[in-house]
Design a protein around this nucleic acid. Structure first.
Length: 216
DNA sequence: GTATAGTTCGTATCAGTGAG
DNA sequence: CTCACTGATACGAACTATAC
């Protein structure tokens, strides 16, 4: 298609190169060896495609292959070192696999979280990673209904694989290091160790307190 | 009105084809 | 039989066309 009003497709490249759309598809998708297309023709097609500024329509590819190449991640907030680092890693891992990462934050709001899941499902992402889920059961309900693969990260979810941060052992190790062989119960009141911070009803905090107490 | 059928988008892929 | 390709088709959703 020399017409600038529309993006070139494999049909345009086929017409301009005197070949068929099947050949162009094979040549440009890298499947040309198994499709028995000559390297000469592949080079020719590639040149014309470059001239026309062709790029694959990923939505059409997704339609054909029944996978979008998109992977979703939901984190509670962006401005947090822990989740910022997590989403950065997620992006790298996704790109290494030729996937396009879509990262959204729920602001720890269950309704917002659910809306994000619905949106990711409607855009047909291939799978969803949910970090620090606010309402994991609701997420699993939505994903199960849509046959959407999902994994919980940091906090556990009941209906899907979960990769959990080990807050219990982290707290244990920290407490042990602080005490360094000291008998805590024999310490004078002013030297006692206290656990400060977190939300008691929060899963991660509860596990940390557990680890802290067990060492004491 | 409403139900159903057909077309559209761009791509990947199976099955087929003609030439050697 | 191999080689180097082509034609037909299906994917999912939105839309139009046709029949009743």
């Amino acid at each position: 298609m020399t017409n600038q009003s529309r993006k070139a497709t494999i049909y345009d490249i086929a017409r301009l190169s005197g070949t068929s759309p099947s050949t162009v598809s094979a040549a440009l998708s890298g499947a040309w060896k198994s499709r028995r297309i000559s390297e000469q023709k592949v080079e020719f097609i590639r040149r014309i495609a470059a001239e026309q500024g062709y790029s694959t329509n990923m939505q059409a590819r997704g339609l054909r292959q029944a996978k979008s190449g998109l992977v979703g991640m939901i984190i509670p907030v962006h401005d947090n070192r822990y989740f910022a680092s997590m989403s950065q890693s997620f992006e790298s891992f996704a790109r290494d696999r030729d996937l396009v990462p879509v990262i959204a934050s729920s602001m720890r709001d269950a309704d917002e979280e659910r809306r994000i899941v619905e949106t990711l499902i409607s855009y047909a992402v291939d799978c969803i990673f949910v970090a620090g889920a606010t309402d994991p059961a609701a997420i699993t309900d939505l994903c199960t209904a849509a046959n959407m693969r999902h994994v919980f990260v940091d906090l556990p979810g009941p209906g899907a694989p979960s990769v959990i941060s080990d807050n219990y052992h982290g707290a244990r190790m920290l407490t042990q290091t602080l005490l360094q062989g000291v008998q805590p119960r024999k310490l004078p009141a002013r030297d006692r160790i206290y656990f400060i911070g977190g939300v008691a009803t929060d899963y991660a905090t509860a596990r940390r307190i557990e680890g802290f107490r067990d060492v004491l």
